[in-house]
Each structure stands twice: as C-alpha cells, then as structure tokens.
C-alpha cells in the first residue's frame, strides 16, 4: 500500500511542481529574432550594466512574431527584436507594440523607424551577393539579381528559407517595386535554376565560403564575417546602375510589446540599444551600420554611397503575409 500511496502522491504533486517550474523569474523577457551569436553579447552587456535578469528566447523572427500574435492579450515578452523592419511593422499594425520614446530616438533617420514610435531600426544592413572568389573571377560576377535566373548560374546560388525575415523583406521590396508578376517569374526562374534553400544566413555564408556554392544571397555583414574568417569571398552590391532596382536596405528593429509584464525595463533596454556603446557593438562586432550618427563603421562603404530601392520600411508590414503566400506557391518555403 505504501508504494501505491507514494505513486499517487507523486502523480498528484507533479502538476504543482511543474507549474512552479513554469513561472519566469526574469526582470525582462526578450523575444529575439536576431541570431544568438550576433545579439547575445549586446544583451549580456545590458544585463551587466542594468543589473537586470534578462531572459531571452532566440528563434526565427517570423516564428516569434507568430508566437506573439498567438499569445494575444497576455504576452510573455517585453521587447521584440526582429531581423527586419517588416516583422515589427506588421506587429505594430496589429496593435501588439506600445509606443516608445527615448533620448536617442530622434537621431535615428526617419526612414528607419515608424512614425508612431512603435518600432525603431537598431542597425542597418544591405542585401548583397556573397561570392566565392576562387570559383568566380571578378569579370564573371553578376551585377544584377535579375541575372541569376540565367542558366549559367544553375545550381550555383544559395539563399535562406522562408523563416528568414530579411529574405522575406527583400522579396516584399521586389514585389512593391517590380510588381507581383515579375517577382513571381523571378522566383520561379530561381527555383527552376536550382536555387538552394538553406537553413539560415550563416549556413549560406559557410556554404559559399567553402565553395559549395558560388553565390549566396545574404545581408552584407555575413560577407564581412565570412571574409574575416579567412574565406575567399567578395561581395557585390547589386543593381546599382541609374534607374535600376537598387539594393535593398533594411534594419534590424526593436519595439516594446504592448501589455508585456515589465514595461519599464523594456524601455531601459530600448534606450540602451540606441546608446553609442550598443551601436558601437552592432558596428564593431557584427559589421552592421549604426543607426545613430557619430558611430564609426568597421571599414564599410558609407551607406549613403549605396543606391537603395526607395521603398519605405514601414510599407513592408502589410506585405509579410502576401510574400509568404507567394513563396509557398512557388515552393521556396524551406
């Protein structure tokens, strides 16, 4: 009988013990769509400087955005960090973000943040081609994205999958600037050309660095990171000719979650991410473009020298679902 009773007690106590484990004791909960290796050092600095206990969930931006939407009126997170502005703009439109105003916000260029303060860019990046220089001499490198559907690149190009928010933002800009039909035709051409869909940007840059593919579609700092690891790589900023498509400039972005458990600490983190110190880390550790003036970049071509697409980032929000639909229809999701 004693054993039976013990078993019964154990079964009865299990849910109580489990729910005790479930509660979070953190002072601040962050959903980070940014890669752990790139973003954790900055969060660690914040935790040290503020003395707050920070709990982070690292996952794909799209995944976390979906999670936040599913959590509805009682979100678990205080701050949402996304790989691109589109994810934040979408959350803002759906009323999931609270307005933020901080000392440095005015210094962020208007085109890199929302008008209502619900989100702001934290670091800027340019979509580029990363090229393996051993496989592809300079004279042969493509200068336009639209060349990549040419049969001569068959099986030689890699891109991330549809869980990658930067990739989604990029397709959204193409849809906005070139229209649905041309974008679909381009994607179908890429698929027919054997575009390799990999798990992440890091996977893409490794695969190009190792020569498995000649060309990868990534954000510029993945080129910088791969190059600094000693791989034979170069980058091409595409479609720079006058009147051309331009290069897609996007921003990793952050916003305060409306109704999150620790709004004051959320504001502290947002303030911190726009300080010179944090901006220097974005630029110094990750080779991104800072969004506040006066912070030097690590040997990057000035952002002003790059011709963008002219699409405002805030317009990407409503496009996310349509872009995902298109990727699914074409069969380039994963």
């Amino acid at each position: 009988m004693r054993r039976g009773a013990l078993l019964l007690v154990a079964v009865l106590l299990a849910p109580a013990a489990l729910s005790a484990c479930g509660g979070s004791s953190a002072d601040l909960v962050v959903y980070s769509g940014r890669n752990e290796a790139l973003f954790k050092p900055i969060l660690d600095d914040f935790a040290e400087a503020s003395g707050l206990q920070v709990s982070v969930r690292f996952a794909d931006t799209t995944d976390l955005a979906g999670t936040l939407l599913e959590e509805g009126g009682s979100p678990r997170a205080d701050v949402f960090i996304g790989q691109d502005a589109g994810a934040l703009a979408r959350l803002g439109e759906k009323g999931r973000l609270a307005p933020y105003d901080g000392p440095a916000l005015d210094q962020v260029p208007a085109e890199l943040r929302s008008a209502d303060g619900t989100w702001t860019g934290l670091s800027a990046r340019v979509r580029v081609l990363i090229i393996n220089t051993e496989e592809l001499p300079e004279a042969e490198r493509p200068e336009s994205l639209f060349e990549l559907t040419d049969p001569k690149w068959k099986g030689k190009v890699a891109a991330p999958n549809a869980t990658n928010a930067s990739w989604i933002g990029f397709i959204s800009e193409m849809r906005l600037k070139r229209g649905e039909d041309e974008t679909r035709a381009w994607l179908e051409g890429m698929k027919a050309n054997g575009l390799a869909v990999l798990g992440s940007h890091t996977d893409v840059r490794n695969a190009v660095g190792s020569g498995e593919f000649q060309i990868g579609l990534v954000n510029h700092y993945y080129y910088e990171l791969e190059q600094r690891e000693g791989s034979p790589v170069a980058q091409v900023v595409t479609d720079q000719e006058p009147g051309g498509f331009g290069a897609v400039v996007n921003a990793s972005s952050g916003g305060i979650v409306k109704g999150g458990p620790n709004p004051e600490n959320a504001k502290k983190l947002m303030d911190f991410l726009l300080t010179t110190k944090a901006q220097e880390e974005f630029a110094g550790l990750n080779f991104e473009y800072p969004v506040v003036p006066g912070v030097p970049t690590e040997g990057l071509a000035p952002l002003e020298s790059i011709t963008g697409t002219g699409i405002e980032l805030a317009r990407l929000g409503p496009q996310v679902d349509k872009t995902l639909d298109l990727l699914r229809e074409v069969g380039l999701e994963s």
């Binding site: 955005a65 599913e70 999958n161 549809a162 798990g199 994963s334």
Partner: peptide
Amino acid sequence: VSLMRLDTFTTVIYAELGGRFD
C-alpha cells in the same frame, strides 16, 4: 532530414508553423 536539406512532411510543417505561423 533538415540538416541534410531534404524537404519532407515534417520540415514543411515546421516551416508552416515557424515561418508563417499558419
């Protein structure tokens, strides 16, 4: 299968959930 970059039902279901949350 994911690490071998092969699409099967499980990887696409995961992408539907983790990618577009559909």
